[in-house]
């Protein structure tokens, strides 16, 4: 049951922001797909290179580690928007619906608070990580921390969006990432 919102109302404005965040979500999901595909292909090539051609490529390992950090943090932000992180529902499910709604709000607020505190660490992390460089490729450790901060920033925006939509009693956002396994039939 989609809510119809009239132009000029608060809800209409929120929906416009949500449409922008839909776009952000799409970019996140596309990025992690690209990162995972690239890592899989590069690693396959590395095995071939080592076993068949007898050569080693040490940059692949560094790249692979970098990509894992980025994929995890970007993926974590994407999961926040669609409420698909691992959670324990059992206890809260036993509560009456109105109370559950308050729990939802409190959880969003708690995660938002965490992400805000972590975002405030940018200067400190920058000061202590930028001097350190990975031994082989010379990637500064800040390149890795950047992934974390992007994740916190986007995650915080998603939490705010969720809080506002809950308060205004609006529908949850559309899921961008696929959910169900799609089994092709007719083998």
């Amino acid at each position: 049951m989609p809510t119809t919102t009239r132009p000029g109302t608060v809800r209409h404005a929120v929906d416009r922001v949500s449409r922008f965040l839909d776009l952000v979500q799409r970019v996140l999901v596309t990025s992690i797909v690209v990162i995972l595909s690239a890592s899989a292909l590069l690693l396959l090539w590395q095995v071939f290179d080592r076993l068949v051609l007898g050569q080693g490529q040490n940059w692949i390992e560094e790249y692979a580690r970098l990509s894992l950090v980025w994929m995890t943090f970007l993926g974590a932000a994407a999961l926040l928007r669609e409420h698909r992180h691992l959670t324990v529902e059992y206890v809260v499910d036993k509560f009456p619906a109105p109370l559950r709604r308050w729990f939802g709000l409190a959880v969003d607020a708690a995660v938002l608070a965490l992400l805000t505190v972590l975002l405030l660490q940018i200067p400190a992390v920058w000061a202590s990580s930028s001097v350190l460089v990975s031994p082989s490729l010379g990637i500064p450790r800040t390149t890795l921390a950047l992934a974390a901060f992007i994740s916190y920033g986007i995650g915080a925006a998603y939490c705010l969006e969720s809080i506002v939509r809950r308060v205004l009693d609006m529908d949850p956002v559309r899921r961008i990432a696929t959910d169900d396994a799609t089994e092709t039939s007719g083998i």
Partner: peptide
């Protein structure tokens, strides 16, 4: 020559072993 040697994944250590013809592996 052609020996697969585990070495630390550091550029100069890899080059040192490639110089003797080994294959460094991280």
């Amino acid at each position: 020559d052609g020996l697969d040697v585990r070495v630390p994944n550091t550029e100069f250590q890899i080059d040192i072993w490639e110089a003797v013809g080994a294959t460094p592996v991280g």
